[in-house]
Amino acid sequence: MALDGTGVTIIGGGIGGLTAALALRAKGANVRVLEQADAIREVGAGIQVSPNGFRVLEALGLDRAFCDITVAGQAVSLRDYKQGREVLRLDLSKLPKQDSYRFVHRAEFVELLATAAREAGVQIRLLQQAETVQPGAKPRVEMANGDQFDDDLVIGADGLHSVLRPVLNGVEAPFFTGQVAWRAVVPNVMGHPPEARVHMGPGRHLVSYPLRGGEAVNLVAVEERREWQAEGWSHIDDPATLRAAFSSFGGMVPEMLHAADKPGVWGLFRHNVARKWHGKNVALIGDAAHPTLPFMAQGAVMAMEDAWVLADELDKAQDNASGLQAYQNRRRDRVVKVVEAANGNAWKYHLSNPLTRGVAHLGLGVLGRFAPEKMLGQFDWIYKHDVTKG
Rank of each mutant, 00 (worst) to 15 (best):
E255Q: 11
M256L: 15
A259L: 12
A259R: 11
A260Y: 05
K262A: 15
K262I: 10
K262Y: 09
G264D: 00
G267N: 03
G267M: 03
L268E: 02
L268S: 02
N272Y: 00
V273L: 05
A274W: 00
R275W: 00
K276P: 00
K276Q: 13
H278Q: 12
H278K: 04
G279E: 02
N281P: 08
V282D: 02
A283T: 06
L284E: 05
G286Y: 00
D287P: 05
A289P: 10
A289C: 10
P291A: 13
L293E: 06
L293H: 08
F295I: 04
F295P: 06
A297T: 08
Q298L: 14
G299K: 07
A300W: 09
A300F: 09
V301W: 09
M302Y: 07
M302T: 12
A303M: 11
A303F: 11
M304W: 04
E305F: 02
D306C: 05
V309Y: 08
V309G: 09
L310I: 07
A311V: 10
D315F: 00
D315N: 15
D315Q: 05
D315C: 03
K316T: 13
K316Q: 15
D319I: 13
A321M: 06
L324Q: 05
R330K: 14
R332P: 02
D333Q: 14
D333E: 15
D333H: 10
V336E: 14
V338D: 03
V339T: 13
A341Q: 10
A341C: 05
G344A: 07
N345P: 10
A346C: 11
K348N: 12
K348D: 06
Y349F: 12
H350P: 06
S352K: 11
N353H: 06
P354C: 05
P354V: 02
A360S: 12
A360V: 09
H361K: 11
H361A: 05
L362I: 06
R369C: 04
R369G: 03
R369M: 10
A371C: 05
A371D: 06
A371V: 07
P372G: 11
P372N: 07
P372I: 03
L376R: 14
G377N: 13
Q378N: 04
